[in-house]
Design a protein around this nucleic acid. Structure first.
Lengths: 242, 242
DNA sequence: CTCTGGCTAATTGTTGACAATTGGCCTTCT
DNA sequence: AGAAGGCCAATTGTCAACAATTAGCCAGAG
């Protein structure tokens, strides 16, 4: 029952490039040469350009006509914008999931939390898995909302950019225990079918994360060594298509 | 100061096709032949395919590999999903706009409402302009939020689909007076800088619209002549890219 | 009469060559 | 010496031909 491998080269390239960008193999702000990428992946420039155009719609690359395309480099303000959106969107997802998720799906959530718990017990500092596990948790709830458009927006666009940022910033100093308890309360609310409470808890959970990011950045203001991309110099503001 | 005309053919095609789809010149569910479109717009298939891939990312067309691409035809459930998202997203936009919009911007909003008022006074049944004016109102508030990502998501994706639906359904029976008052109250809250109130009012405003849509559809259940796309037979469910 | 199987035509996917635009470099004039 | 202007290389945008896959159709067997 494994998923049909994406058929067209353009599709495969899109996923490969997306993955490479998220993981940082194609560094943020890096210029993408069509010729080089085409030869690297062993394809022609046609499918490659199609993939690039899709990446542009997903806001993973920025393209300037006749000049070139660069991997997007999101600054702090952009990430805060994303977190604001996440807050209301995942809140909505929780409210919907509370009435739409089956008991077995919720059981899976509990089991997921258990495995996170054990990981945290065994080893305190595994930021990497913890981070991916965190998004996995959110991913499942969003999927459980049943709102396909919501799923696409969050899992198809926003999450990739958050993961991209986490890879490049390697945000240590995550708050595993704290977040774990919040996750637990959210699932409890879901199990109770209490949509309002689940929404409230999720929004507070994400808002806390956002505030923690802001706080970290404010501290690193006096500690310029770890100051990352304050005002995002490399970005050209792209205008909105009317 | 007219805007630089979009440079590449791919960009121009993207906008033209988007416009054609929204206006219904390319009917919902219609199959798009690459050869025909290419000759119609006087370009080669290369740029056309790039534009199509972007339209696919924006969810305006659905593509099945090696088979063809069709204009998306959104059913009632999809539209309800969109309205749910709109509710929380525009609520957020209002909360932000309340602190970020300048007084001159808010004055512009008041003037916009006045013009709507006059249009409503002069002629009761102009659904077309009223609808476009409605989105114009929402558009300005969202723009005033200052959250670029939010602006892109709403104005670049969701609004086009809503306009598309309105064109094809020609939803008469709009509630101009009622909506007008709600708009007025929202702007009042913005003028007061009361973000919470603005958010609340906007969410209620959109929720009311959504409920009105559901009600209309339930009525037309017994009036099958005007029943539109109940369960959206033509749509293939597209799977989410992981 | 229906169902299966292969074949054919039409459409999409891919490629490599060609054209157009950009940005840097060098020359030249003030 | 500095700036302005034009030239050249490199990269992107576009095109038309080629290859591969799909879907419909027709024939034939059960």
């Amino acid at each position: 029952m494994s998923v049909d491998s994406p058929r067209t080269l353009s599709d495969q390239l899109f996923e490969k490039l997306q993955h490479a960008i998220v993981r940082g193999d194609l560094a943020a702000g890096m210029r993408l040469s069509e010729a080089e990428l085409a030869s690297r992946y062993g394809v022609s420039r046609g499918p490659l350009r199609e993939a690039i155009h899709r990446l542009e719609s997903r806001k993973l690359v920025v393209r300037t006509p006749h000049s070139g395309t660069k991997v997007v480099s999101l600054g702090q303000n952009e990430l805060l914008d994303i977190y604001q959106i996440r807050e209301v969107l995942e809140g909505l997802a929780c409210r919907l999931a509370a009435t739409k998720m089956s008991t077995s799906q919720i059981d899976q959530l509990y089991r997921l939390l258990e495995s996170h718990q054990q990981q945290s017990d065994l080893q305190e500092g595994i930021a990497y898995f913890q981070q991916e596990g965190d998004l996995d948790f959110h991913y499942r709830i969003v999927t459980g909302s049943g709102n396909q458009r919501l799923i696409d927006t969050l899992c198809g666009e926003l999450y990739h950019q958050i993961r991209m940022y986490r890879y490049q910033a390697s945000t240590g100093g995550n708050r595993p225990v704290h977040a774990f308890n919040e996750h637990q309360h959210i699932v409890d609310a879901l199990a109770d079918g209490d949509g309002e409470m689940a929404e409230l808890l999720m929004r507070r959970h994400i808002r806390t994360s956002r505030l923690r990011l802001e706080k970290t950045w404010n501290n690193s203001r006096s500690n310029p060594v770890s100051a990352v991309n304050k005002n995002n110099k490399t970005e050209e503001r792209q205008e909105t298509v009317l």
